[in-house]
């Protein structure tokens, strides 16, 4: 609390992780309040379905505001190295799996997931990717679809 008025960092800086956390909590709280705007709030004796969601979202947004304000006045702290390539690649890989699992079956979904997913690591080599995709897809089909009985077609046709 002593660092609230730090003259060395007038506008730039601030504790970036805290700023991010505060912003995130405020926006999620607001999102929750908006999504639950039609729910009955009720009163303490007869709580409506919206009582707890609205109360908790408000508390979360307030906490977010507190963290944000304090974060802005704290001495500068960076977020650490930011490298979005792995995350974006993984999102594309998983989205493809989610889309194709029911439509095109296990083999297509798993091959997409593994080939694209492997690109998330810059150290990956094509030869390794193809071998591991082939091995994991066939083992996966045997284990999950035939062995454990996961309800997913194996082939697209």
């Amino acid at each position: 609390m002593g660092a609230a008025m730090n003259p060395r960092t007038p506008f730039r800086g601030g504790d970036l992780p805290d700023v991010l956390a505060g912003t995130l909590m405020i926006s999620l709280g607001a999102l929750g309040l908006w999504a639950g705007r039609d729910l009955t709030y009720g009163n303490p004796a007869m709580m409506g379905p919206g009582f707890l969601p609205a109360s908790l979202c408000t508390i979360m947004a307030l906490i977010g505001g507190f963290v944000l304000v304090k974060g802005l006045s704290k001495p500068a702290e960076s977020m650490g190295a930011l490298n979005l390539r792995p995350l974006v690649t993984l999102v594309v890989a998983i989205a493809g799996f989610a889309f194709s699992a029911e439509r095109f079956g296990f083999v297509v979904a798993s091959a997409w997931l593994l080939i694209i997913g492997s690109l998330a690591d810059p150290e990956s080599r094509w030869k390794e990717i193809f071998i591991s995709t082939a091995v994991l897809t066939s083992l996966g089909a045997l284990l999950f679809v035939y062995g454990l009985g996961v309800q997913m077609p194996v082939w697209p046709f």
């Binding site: 993984l90 998983i94 799996f97 989610a98 889309f99 029911e102 994991l136 454990l148 996961v150």
Partner: peptide
């Protein structure tokens, strides 16, 4: 990690057999 990734996706899918959960 590709093996972990496959386990994650198939596992989540198998909960209710729908791609929605994976998304």
């Amino acid at each position: 990690y590709p093996a972990i990734l496959l386990f994650c996706c198939v596992g989540v899918f198998s909960v209710s057999n729908r791609g929605f959960d994976v998304a």
